[in-house]
């Protein structure tokens, strides 16, 4: 075990996998000489050279499209989209091509591709450097979407994503990069895609969330504990495919469910989690399912007061917990 920052864990996992497998290469904007705008890929070009750490021209659809071609060929590309907000020009390649490669070729071709992108707000990134885009891809068959909350999961899920035979979107919350640090297992450590993590056990109500919100929910749960309310906290880790068993077990255990995400509420991942519980565990519930999410407005505000107002935080989660506990 080594205590690592979330960002260093991602960097080290990439480096280890590039050393282990010659087929792994990185392609994206400013990932080479600059080492990425957040410095996730720092030093990789010096070790692996410019053919395996490719500073691509500024064109997201080409970055993903080229990576798809190389993946179909048999390599293991890790494409970086500089900010999740800018993944949109590549959506046609991701949804029409990567997600359907295996299906439309009747298993003759596949697309073992990873697309990494920093997402999320609360870092004064404003409209176009703060968005959460997971719900767009959550809807699409053929894709996997992972969103680690800890440094250990970042490593374990990134190694699993690179080794996965199908396309995986790997969303990293940029607020976690240099804020969160935890014990990361050394060596070849993988976390299975599609498995949630029970962060803490509790009796009174269940919180289901992912990404940055896991940490805010933990803070809130510690507050509620002082008030005598015990919280079961589930970190989804993977939002596609969802861990149905873990969701249903956590929901049935307390009978009260609060779903939290930073992304806007309508049509978000929480809606599907809620539907799974409603379909499979309605009669185990003691209260209506509650959702605490970003509001349905187009973008993150730039000015700090409105940004704080927009973001879900531990105080808001604590309030929502109290309300649900009292139901």
């Amino acid at each position: 075990m080594t205590v690592k920052l979330y960002i260093d864990s991602i960097h080290d996992a990439l480096q280890e996998e590039m050393r282990r497998d010659q087929g792994v290469f990185v392609v994206g904007e400013d990932v080479g000489v600059r080492g990425g705008v957040f410095r996730v890929t720092q030093g990789l070009i010096e070790e692996f050279g410019e053919m395996r750490v490719i500073d691509a021209p500024l064109a997201e659809s080409a970055i993903v499209g080229v990576a798809i071609g190389a993946a179909a060929y048999g390599l293991k590309p890790v494409a970086e989209i500089q900010f999740a907000d800018f993944i949109l020009p590549a959506v046609n390649q991701i949804i029409s091509e990567a997600a359907k490669m295996r299906y439309r070729s009747n298993n003759d071709w596949s697309c073992p591709l990873v697309v990494r992108a920093p997402y999320g707000g609360g870092v004064h990134g404003a409209l176009y450097h703060s968005q959460s885009v997971e719900a767009l891809f959550h809807h699409v068959p053929g894709l996997k979407v992972v969103m680690p909350a800890t440094a250990a999961d970042a490593k374990g899920l990134l190694l699993s994503a690179i080794r996965d035979p199908d396309p995986v979107l790997f969303f990293e919350h940029k607020a976690l990069y240099r804020w969160v640090k935890d014990d990361v297992p050394d060596g070849d450590y993988t976390v299975p895609i599609g498995k949630a993590r029970l962060v803490r056990e509790g009796e009174d109500l269940t919180v289901i969330t992912y990404g940055l919100m896991v940490h805010y929910a933990e803070e809130a749960a510690r507050e509620l504990e002082k008030e005598g309310v015990s919280i079961e906290l589930l970190d989804l880790r993977t939002v596609s495919p969802l861990d149905r068993e873990a969701i249903l077990a956590a929901a049935k255990k307390t009978g009260k469910v609060l779903i939290v995400h930073e992304d806007n509420k309508t049509g978000g991942v929480g809606a599907e989690v809620s539907a799974i519980i409603a379909e499979e565990a309605l009669f185990d519930l003691d209260a209506p399912i509650a959702r605490l999410c970003g509001p349905d407005i187009p973008a993150m505000p730039f000015n700090p007061p409105q940004e704080r107002f927009y973001m879900v935080n531990s105080e808001k989660i604590a309030q929502a917990m109290r309300k649900l506990a009292a139901f």
């Binding site: 490719i54 659809s61 080409a62 993903v64 499209g65 080229v66 990576a67 798809i68 071609g69 190389a70 993946a71 179909a72 060929y73 048999g74 390599l75 590309p77 046609n92 390649q93 029409s96 091509e97 439309r104 070729s105 009747n106 003759d108 071709w109």
Partner: peptide
């Protein structure tokens, strides 16, 4: 959609131009 083994033919692309960057990816590989 399946060529015989050893025939390096990608599946037909129906969306327009999406196969062009894939060819660049295979050339890169």
């Amino acid at each position: 959609a399946m060529p015989p083994e050893g025939v390096n033919l990608f599946p037909v692309s129906v969306p327009i131009a999406t196969q062009i960057p894939h060819a660049a990816g295979a050339a890169l590989a």
